[in-house]
Design a protein around this nucleic acid. Structure first.
Length: 879
RNA sequence: GGACGCAUAGCUCAGCUGGUUAGAGCGCUGCCCUCACAUGGCAGAGGUCGAAGGUUCAAGUCCUUCUGCGUCCACCA
């Protein structure tokens, strides 16, 4: 056994283990290898442009815990890794890069620009994967997929074509969310509402026949008035009924527009009259359709005013706003300006204010898909945790709107549609197929042009659970691993991704893609703010890994993962410290145990009848921890599982058990127990902190072990009985024993002495409350290391347990003060007993409370009374 | 405007179906470098469970209202 440093060095160990896992292909998934069946999880694919942040770290640690646990349980585990091409985000990154060379994508041209994108992907695309790797994620890395790799693209095309055939994809001109900076359409979910304080401009529109008569309209976007083609009022609004049908001269543009009546108009808002701009507002668009209005587009795709804007042509939309307002004011048409709070939609990629813009796009008809997703949920085929998110999922599906899937960018899956010169569309799997279709239609070869647009990134992401398994090609993996078991993700992404995956899964695989959706919190800084680069409050996971180790990162993160997680750098110390404690306790064990004990594999190797009481006790505690941890993991309550392990290992195994058996290490059965409990605890801890546990395990066994391939411990029912015997003995007896020891050995100050401790079986409850008292009493006798006798018992015989105590009499405490304190506590005990007595005398309680509760209370009272009595006796016989 | 979440020790949170004298970690105080570990050990201080009502024999836990913080959704000009 090589000498191990007293300080755990994570960097060295983690590097070594990563290499080993790779060499041994430890995470390689194989279908139909085990009788336990499949257990698959797909990673939420991070953006290729991504750099590991705390959100990833949390998300992947959660998955890894489950994955490693299930692997240890013997399932055929597949954790599918990969990255998302992240259309706009990636294109933005590369556009910025070429901008440094003075280039734009337009000057470069589509093909060259695409080359640059792929080049970028080749160089930087693995960054995040490598970082996830460092975190210890046990994905089957050989399977790493990319949403734009060849097979995946095939799946995307197949889905587009199938949906089109089923009448669920259509093309049309509607008002969509347009980002003038990215010059592309966005889906509703990609345009985020953000509150902003703006203004409400009230403008006067004069009547053509009678310039002295006018209506006043209010708007938050005055520049759009240039595209007005009507003014609308509510048909039941008496103020305006006489004006319906009259003509108005639109200021600045001098276009004649009509006053129309429409139920949409809210009489109570503003003046009750509203300007109608069908090409620049979704409501106005609908009105325009209803009333057959003209659609006048006043803007170029980049947000600069076009020729329809008259003298405002060439101005950016915000500059145009200023100048329009000014011009209106000068013309005396501006009535007033009110401050106004409203939600402005912004591009989720570049934060530019989104423009409602009329354009021709491709859409997915969502209602039929959503209905099935809803039905599957109602049938209980999908569980969402925590439950409160179920409603969010449900509401979105109920109120769903069609999905705009075309994007005017270049990085992505090209829309598989070709047009001939007449504008006929040919939806096809390939250009050749399209050409063939066109040939049939025209009876001759014709030239075709492919639709220049690409598909929304999410149009590929929503296929992730089955496209990664090889769909549309049939295969063993697809058949075996689909549907997957669970999905871990952040709630922000329910609409973008989760709900859509459910739809696609049902539509194309006939089954929901996962049974459990686990939504975890957001990682925030200590002040509760989201971590972001711009705020400068982000803690880099790689920095933490470098300093404290990946185990420390994982451990601390999970321990803190209740709802949202508030992180500061100091919080990672707990993980580092724990790993170090684990390391040192193991070092101690290895220093003191015989090789025979270190080789112990299971409980059968221990002669339980010959076991010392402390070891019997730790067995019981271990069983309890094992059951609790297993249950917590099954319920996805990882922080609870981890906390249980933390307390068991540190608070019970180290602080009590190892202290107790020091000096008893010559017993081989004790040695074996010490080792076996440690080994099984390492196994239980392995899903949480894979590196350090495996390293230690390998040192103990002397064999390089891949712990995730070892079996998860199974509770041994026969050891549970020790639990029932846990009890505290007579306090008077303890005091007596201490006094005897002192007298017997003629103890001098600061002499460490072993104390024989009498403890009897019987009283099972009240252990914890007794503990503090006993420690006090023991201290009053001059024992400093009062490892107390919690849980130590040696059967009903009431014979000595043999727990080691150090008794330095140097620092005797103030006995009088302690006596007073104990007296107070005893009084409190008596008070509690009295309260119970009162309760028991209460008619309501006796008649209405369940009998077992009454019985419990009665017992408790008896116990409190007798304990108080005993403490009183003990006080009397003290020094 | 709609929906949801949180409020428990100085800080971060447990407290799962109402039933012992409300717990942990960090921080703080005191004593210890004792031969596994000072990234450690032992001992200790610290809470009228956000406010007010209500249900109940019994409320941190259930109901109502309010206050403060947070999140998501939303086409009202």
């Amino acid at each position: 056994m090589p000498e191990l440093s007293p300080r755990y060095n994570p960097q060295e160990v983690e590097e070594k283990r990563l290499k080993l896992w790779q060499e041994k292909k430890a995470f390689h998934a194989v279908a139909e290898r085990s009788r336990k069946g499949p257990f698959a999880v797909v990673i939420p694919p991070p953006n290729v442009t991504g750099v590991l942040h705390m959100g990833h770290a949390l998300n992947n640690t959660l998955q890894d815990i489950l994955i490693r646990y299930k692997r240890m349980q013997g399932f055929d585990v597949l954790w599918m890794p990969g990255t998302d091409h992240a259309g706009i985000a990636t294109q933005n990154v590369v556009e910025k890069q070429i901008a440094k060379e003075g280039l734009t994508r337009e000057t470069l041209g589509r093909d060259k620009f695409m080359e640059r994108l792929w080049e970028w992907k080749a160089h930087h695309g693995d960054t995040i994967i490598n970082q996830l790797h460092k975190l210890g994620s046990s994905c089957d890395w050989d399977r790493t997929r990319f949403t734009m790799d060849e097979g995946y693209s095939e799946a995307v095309r197949e889905v587009f074509i199938t949906l089109h055939e089923r009448g669920l994809i259509y093309q049309g001109s509607y008002i969509i969310n347009w980002c003038p900076r990215c010059t592309t359409a966005l889906a509703d979910e990609e345009a985020e509402h953000k509150d902003a304080s703006g203004s409400l401009w009230h403008i006067r529109y004069a009547l053509k026949d009678d310039p002295f008569q006018s209506v006043i309209v209010a708007t938050t976007r005055p520049e759009t008035m240039l595209g007005d083609t009507a003014v609308a009022v509510n048909p039941s609004d008496e103020r305006y009924t006489h004006l319906i049908g009259k003509v108005i001269i639109l200021p600045l543009i001098n276009r004649e527009i009509t006053i129309i009546a429409d139920d949409f108009v809210d009489r109570a808002f503003g003046s009750g009259a509203v300007k109608v701009t069908p090409a620049h507002d979704p409501n106005d668009f609908a009105m325009g359709r209803r009333h057959n209005l003209e659609f006048i587009n006043i803007m170029h795709p980049n947000g600069v005013m076009n020729a329809n804007a008259g003298r405002f042509e060439g101005l950016d939309r915000f500059e145009a706003r200023k100048q329009v307002v000014q011009a209106l004011d000068e013309a005396g048409m501006l009535v007033k300006i009110e401050p106004h709070m409203n939600a402005v939609r912004r591009c989720y990629r570049c934060d530019t204010v989104v423009e409602p813009y009329l354009s021709r796009q491709w859409f997915v008809k969502m209602k039929p898909l959503a209905e099935k997703a809803l039905a599957a949920f109602h049938d209980g085929k999908l569980r969402i945790q925590p439950k409160r998110w179920e409603k969010v999922y449900e509401n979105w599906l109920v109120d769903i709107r069609d999905w705009c899937i075309s994007r005017q960018i270049w990085w992505g899956h090209r829309i598989p549609v070709w047009y001939d010169e007449q504008g006929n569309t040919f939806v096809a799997r390939s250009e050749a197929e399209a050409k063939e279709k066109a040939r049939v239609k025209h009876g001759k070869e014709v030239t075709l042009l492919q639709d220049p647009d690409v598909l929304d990134t999410w149009f590929s992401s929503w296929l992730w659970p089955f496209a990664t398994l090889g769909w549309p090609k049939p295969g063993k993996d697809l058949k075996y691993f689909y549907p997957t078991a669970a999905l871990f993700t952040a709630p922000e992404i329910i609409f973008f991704w989760v709900a859509r995956m459910v739809m696609a899964g049902i539509e194309f695989m006939g089954e929901v893609p996962f049974k459990d959706v686990i939504l975890h919190g957001t990682v925030r800084d200590a002040k509760g703010r989201k971590m972001s680069k711009s705020l400068g409050n982000a803690i880099d996971p790689l920095e933490i890994i470098g300093e404290y180790g990946a185990d420390a990162l994982r451990f601390s993160m999970i321990l803190n993962s209740g709802q949202d997680i508030y992180i500061s750098k100091e919080k990672f110390e707990i993980g580092r410290n724990f790993a170090n404690k684990l390391w040192n306790a193991s070092r101690f064990v290895m220093m003191n145990l015989a090789p025979e004990a270190l080789r112990i594999e299971d409980f059968a190797g221990i002669d339980h009848a010959a076991l010392d009481p402390a070891s019997q006790w730790i067995m019981a505690r271990y069983q309890k921890a094992l059951v609790a941890v297993t249950e917590a993991i099954e319920q996805f309550r990882y922080s609870e599982a981890e906390n249980t392990l933390y307390e068991f290992f540190w608070g019970t195994y180290c602080d009590w058990y190892l202290e107790m058996i020091k000096g008893r290490m010559d017993d081989i059965n004790t040695q074996k127990t010490v080792c076996l409990i440690l080994k099984n605890t390492l196994k239980m801890l392995h899903p949480f902190i894979p590196f350090v546990t495996e390293e230690i395990y390998s040192h103990i066994t002397g064999v390089e072990t891949v712990l995730t391939l070892e079996a998860w411990p199974i509770p041994e029912e026969k050891y549970a009985y020790a639990q029932a015997e846990v009890g505290m003995g007579s306090i008077v007896a303890i005091i007596t024993a201490i006094r005897n020891v002192r007298a017997q050995w003629n103890i001098k100050p600061n002499d460490p002495v072993e104390c024989v401790f009498v403890a009897a079986a019987g009283s099972e409850t009240g252990l914890r409350t007794n503990e503090a008292m006993i420690k006090r009493l023991v201290r009053m006798s001059g024992i400093r290391y009062a490892t107390s006798a919690e849980g130590i018992t040696n059967s009903a015989a009431g014979v000595a347990g043999d727990i080691k105590f150090f008794i330095p009499l140097g620092d005797l405490i103030d006995v009088a003060k302690e006596k007073a304190r104990i007296t107070a506590e005893v009084a409190q005990m008596e008070k509690a007993a009295h309260a119970i007595a009162g309760r028991l005398a209460n008619e309501g309680f006796v008649s209405k409370a369940p009998p077992e509760v009454i019985e419990k209370e009665r017992q408790r009272m008896t116990e409190l009374t007798s304990r108080a009595l005993e403490f009183n006796k003990a006080l009397a016989c003290l020094i």
